[in-house]
Design a protein around this nucleic acid. Structure first.
Lengths: 151, 151
DNA sequence: GGTCATTACTCAACATATAGGGTTTTTGCT
DNA sequence: AGCAAAAACCCTATATGTTGAGTAATGACC
């Protein structure tokens, strides 16, 4: 393990601990050349997740697709890119933690909607309108009324 | 190390290799419960990088600031978010690999400009105009002429 | 300035990982 | 399809990491 201070290739482990959930190992290392210490993390390679679309077709999970959907819904809305990325991070991690190798696209949509609802209701309705394929003004109104009623 | 398939906490190492540059270790593990195999990476915790601004003030490195600058320069330009994130990734890694704990903000600006120049010249000039604080139309024209001359 | 939580540090008994060489399979590319 | 590169696999001798417990230092928050 290369020392981040001097570049030496060899280092030894001084301490090693499991993270709370056991999903990673934190090691404290010491460079054999300069003696400086540093921390490393051993993490599981993220396994390829497959998204099952409504028509039954499958494609590999792509976080950028989620982000793009959010970007569209949040255009001109006061939602920062960082916040959106945070949501995508949360969702990605949630799916990874679920131990499932397949997710229905609906499930992802619901997750995004839950988060958006808390962040910006306009963005939420926009997203839902695309996502739930609101076909007429009526269903759009119903959703708006539901939001208003909850207030 | 938690098994990504069944969630069991214990696993054993079956194989372990250094990455080419020694900056990480790839391990092949086998779950003690379900017997499935998976890959892990041990990586150095990224050390806090300090950016030294032109006036000498220091603040911690923030990749979002770089991304924001690029987003502004690339508005309405055919540069994908993914491409911009790729540039930021490259720059972050370049700095991490340099083993320096401090970078001048100018250096970061130059890196961004190099990349942008290859991707989209309009975005490049926009970025440079902010970055180099072009004070008048003249210097802007000079930069444009330089680009044209290079063609 | 005090408190809680997280990270750092040290020690000792025990077990499991490493390095390196070689083979096979998978994946990405044209 | 056909090549090259990367990843997975398997082996053996050797030494290095792991675990638990307790203490100390550091950072975030009020």
């Amino acid at each position: 393990m290369k020392c981040p201070y001097c570049g030496e290739q060899d280092s030894k482990v001084v301490d090693s601990r499991h993270s709370e959930d056991g999903s990673s190992i934190r090691r404290r290392r010491e460079c054999l050349l300069c003696g400086k210490r540093f921390t490393t993390y051993e993490i599981v390679e993220s396994l390829p997740i497959v998204v099952v679309k409504r028509d039954g077709s499958r494609q590999s999970f792509d976080r950028n697709k989620i982000l793009n959907g959010m970007l569209r819904a949040c255009e001109k809305r006061p939602v920062s890119l960082a916040a959106m990325e945070g949501v995508v991070d949360d969702i990605e991690q949630y799916i990874q933690n679920s131990l499932e190798r397949e997710v229905r696209s609906e499930e992802i949509g619901e997750l995004v909607m839950d988060k958006l609802k808390q962040m910006d209701e306009v963005a939420y309705v926009r997203f839902a309108s695309v996502y739930r394929s609101f076909t007429d003004v009526n269903s759009f109104m119903q959703e708006l009324n539901k939001i208003l009623a909850e207030k």
